[in-house]
Amino acid sequence: MQPIFKDLLVLELASVLAGPSVGQFFAELGARVLKVENAATHGDVTRSWKLKSEPAQTDTPAYFCAANWGKTSLALNLTEPEQLQRLYTLVRQADVVIASYKPGDAEKLQVDYRTLQSINPRLVYGHITGYGPKDARAGYDAVVQAESGFMHLNGEPDGQPVKMPVALMDILTAHQLKEGLLVALLQRERTGLGQLVEVSLLQAAVSALANQATNYLVAGQEPQRMGSEHPNIVPYGSVYTCKCGKQLVLAIGDDRQFRRLCAILGAESMADDPKYKTNYARVQHRQEVNGRLRQLIAQQERESLLRQLHTRHVPAGAVHTLPEVFGLPQAQQLLLQQPHGKPGLRQVAFRLQGQQELELSPPPTYNSGGAEGDSGPSC
């Protein structure tokens, strides 16, 4: 089977994580992706976001490698007319443009949708902003985590708001843009015309508040920080420490699972107690439930307990470190390999029947020569 997006040309006028993640998504499915980097700023800013342990001279540090596999680099200064015309030549051939400009900046550079659509009416143009087309603020993930309520909800009840350890707002925005671009490409198949797809970090974040939003909108309860606890279910997300010092998480979704949990822990009577018998009752007596379970689980060895829980179909899992995560066979299947370098991580986690995964070139080194750059040596 041919790659899904064979012969599709994607121009990536985006930097950092959200837009480049979408570019790598298309690359993994067979598209040719040109990463058009700003020659005036020496390329994507994440080329300078290096860990203390990384060499100063590398321009493909770990952060950059998170979203730039399978691309070639093309450095252009779009304020120079000759180089802008080079971009326009590519636009005539392109299928998709991915952009991430503050409102008004694309127009100043003459790379906005209206301008590029006049060159290529079939062009599908995806534009990421921080707050929408009428708010000129730049979007930064940490700020949007705060403004969208995620930081307020994240952390321990008696602690400070906490930023999540990944740029989740960028990732959510990337997923929204992928969906919009795929819909626009389907529409183009029917009409022959391109489309503008717009998504903001803030709206992508708010749309992902899910049950926390409806707890407020529908039930009238303002959600508060609860650590890893769940406001509607008990025990769900709760972390317990076993006799061996290792931790596990329970995700009990219904009363049958709770009854099986109690049986495994030798506390059958707990499942019959009116205070714990139903999820509604357990939510009312959350502290008591967790206190009892902590005592019982503290007497167990984690691996033995998890085997019993899995056998009885009780949702539970170990709290893993990242080295442990990448020891899992499911995680190994998501690795991008290269012969003489370190692996990367796929953006595409779904599988299509009969579709083979493509081998991708590693993230490209910055090309300051004005021609399409080769992929870099490795990350």
Rank of each mutant, 00 (worst) to 15 (best):
Q2C: 00
K6T: 14
L8M: 15
V16F: 12
L17S: 00
L17W: 01
L17K: 01
A18R: 07
Q24I: 02
Q24K: 13
F25N: 02
F26G: 01
A31D: 02
T41K: 09
Q57V: 11
Y63S: 10
F64P: 00
C65V: 05
K71S: 06
T72D: 05
L84F: 01
V91F: 05
Q93F: 07
D95M: 07
S100L: 04
Y101K: 05
L109Y: 02
V111W: 07
D112C: 11
R114W: 02
L116S: 02
Q117I: 00
S118G: 14
G126D: 02
G130V: 10
G130H: 08
P133S: 11
S148L: 07
N154C: 07
I171W: 03
H175F: 03
L177G: 02
V183W: 03
A184V: 05
R188E: 04
V199M: 06
S207P: 04
A210C: 09
N211L: 11
T214A: 02
V218N: 14
A219I: 00
M226Y: 00
I233Q: 11
Y236T: 03
K243H: 09
C244D: 15
K246N: 12
K246L: 11
R256F: 12
V283D: 13
R286M: 02
R286N: 13
V289E: 07
Q300E: 14
L328P: 00
Q330T: 14
Q333C: 06
L334E: 12
Q338C: 04
R346S: 09
R351T: 13
E359S: 13
S368H: 11
S375W: 14
S378N: 05
